[in-house]
């Protein structure tokens, strides 16, 4: 069967849920950030796949991906800043320790 949209979509879904699993499971904030990056990448794959296989006359999907990458970069930077700030106050980046929002 030739590789079609469905294959790529399934790949990106699998990658997304790998990221979700990592997000739920990891205790270190930086590894959580890494899982988020995986999720964003899977979304990127989705966009370009839809663009290539369903609407090849447009290039909108590519632009979505470009902007997502840009914003992901900015967001990763802000997240690192927060992590550093949190590290300063708690002296640890274990997410179990940051539970001041508890009842």
């Amino acid at each position: 069967m030739p590789i079609g949209l469905t294959h790529v979509i399934i790949l990106s879904t699998a990658l997304f849920f790998i990221g979700v699993y990592g997000f739920f499971t990891r205790r270190n904030l930086i590894t959580i950030l890494m899982s988020i990056e995986l999720m964003l990448n899977s979304v990127n794959i989705n966009f370009v796949a839809f663009n290539k296989y369903l609407y090849p006359q447009n290039i909108d999907g590519i632009f979505f991906s470009i902007f997502i990458i840009t914003i992901a970069a900015a967001e990763a930077a802000v997240a690192i800043a927060i992590i550093i700030n949190l590290y300063r106050s708690h002296n640890s980046i274990d997410v179990e320790e940051a539970n001041e929002m508890k009842y």
Binding site: T25, I32, V95, A98, M101, K102, Y103
Partner: peptide
């Protein structure tokens, strides 16, 4: 129910999912 507000980020995400 109060226990559900654990302040734990990942629990919240799990509930969300």
């Amino acid at each position: 129910i109060k226990g559900w507000q654990s302040g734990n980020l990942q629990s919240y995400a799990l509930y969300f999912l």
